[in-house]
Design a protein around this nucleic acid. Structure first.
Lengths: 187, 187
DNA sequence: GGTGGTTTTTGACAATTGTCAAAAAATATC
DNA sequence: GATATTTTTTGACAATTGTCAAAAACCACC
């Protein structure tokens, strides 16, 4: 729980009351590698904060497994479109390692948004942060070569490269694992 | 101004007080085609709501002009990372048509966020909407072919295709204009 | 230490898309 | 309406990345 509030503090200072309210809705979760946090084509009910472990957001496109997002310690994991729209989405989330998480349920969070202005603000800042991250990854995909994208990932999230299998990293980068393997072999 | 509040109403219902406060900070703007709304490598100070016209968010990557985003009537235009982080960003915004806009200044908006809980909520919902849109475009770029991306654009924003030059559409889709021209010629 | 399974690498080849140059078409200007 | 300018299309070819198949490396487990 400490790590969660440390991450929150990087965005803004919350009132003690709001912190208390937030801690009351944080659900501690512990699951083994391979556990499915969010089923594909279901509504994502939680935002997850990762205390320890690694998650993968994925879906199938033309029969092929696509890794949409990866999250490790002190990051959030969420099937964003589904969580925000309350509609099912093809994206599922599974664990790539045994993990300890904090879950924030949509309804609970919504209640706190209504009740506490500063929690609503925190929500805005968290979504803003997600938007910035996605924009950066979008830029990378927009006009960078496979090798450049791999380089960027090494600079920003080397931990993913060390901890996730090659095929998943490749898909995350929008390339095949054969191409990634060849990029690697050329230093 | 009516169109702005109509767009806002799609997200949530604001109090009359907040609407009044918002309308007091909305700056009417009118510029000719080619006008630069946000200079490259500067801090974006406004979110723009487009009453009429077409904007393009762009930057240079390895000497090449990249179109990052397009916005038309009833959409917002903003150099998101710069606006949110208060840092300069390579992205600039220019007008592709004579346009009528409403500008919301960062400081003004921030003041209303602090003052009115429901405006803060609106901010959260607007950013959430932006995140969803970006995620959808990200998905498209992630593992769709050039032809599929063009198809998606025709289905979601045909107006861009009709109103922006080919080179800009191609760049928006992450391909060269020659490739787009060839996709077009095959129906 | 062998066995089975998974992950990664390599090879040969194909498909997609990019590059550069020039022609054609569309649009603006006088 | 002719000329200049910009935009779009086409052609030839190159580069990048994908596909499929097989080999090699790695790992877990008995």
């Amino acid at each position: 729980m400490e790590s969660f509030f440390k991450a929150v503090a990087a965005f803004m200072q919350l009132s003690e009351e709001s912190k208390l309210a937030l801690s009351s809705i944080l659900k501690p979760l512990e699951f083994p590698k391979g556990h499915v946090l969010v089923r594909q084509d279901s509504v994502c009910q939680y935002v997850y904060f990762i205390e320890k472990g690694l998650t993968r957001t994925f879906y199938y496109k033309d029969g092929k497994d696509v890794t949409d997002w990866l999250s490790a310690e002190n990051m959030f994991a969420c099937s964003i479109i589904s969580f925000l729209t309350r509609q099912p989405d093809r994206r599922g989330i599974e664990l790539l390692e045994d993990s300890c998480l904090w879950g924030l349920h949509y309804e609970d969070l919504e209640r706190l948004y209504r009740q506490y202005h500063d929690v609503e603000r925190l929500g805005r800042l968290l979504v803003s942060s997600g938007l910035i991250q996605l924009q950066q990854r979008f830029d990378d995909l927009h006009f960078a070569t496979a090798a450049q994208r791999y380089q960027t990932l090494m600079e920003t999230n080397a931990t993913f490269i060390q901890r996730a299998p090659l095929g998943i990293i490749a898909s995350y980068l929008g390339i095949t694992q054969e191409t990634l393997s060849r990029i690697r072999s050329q230093h």
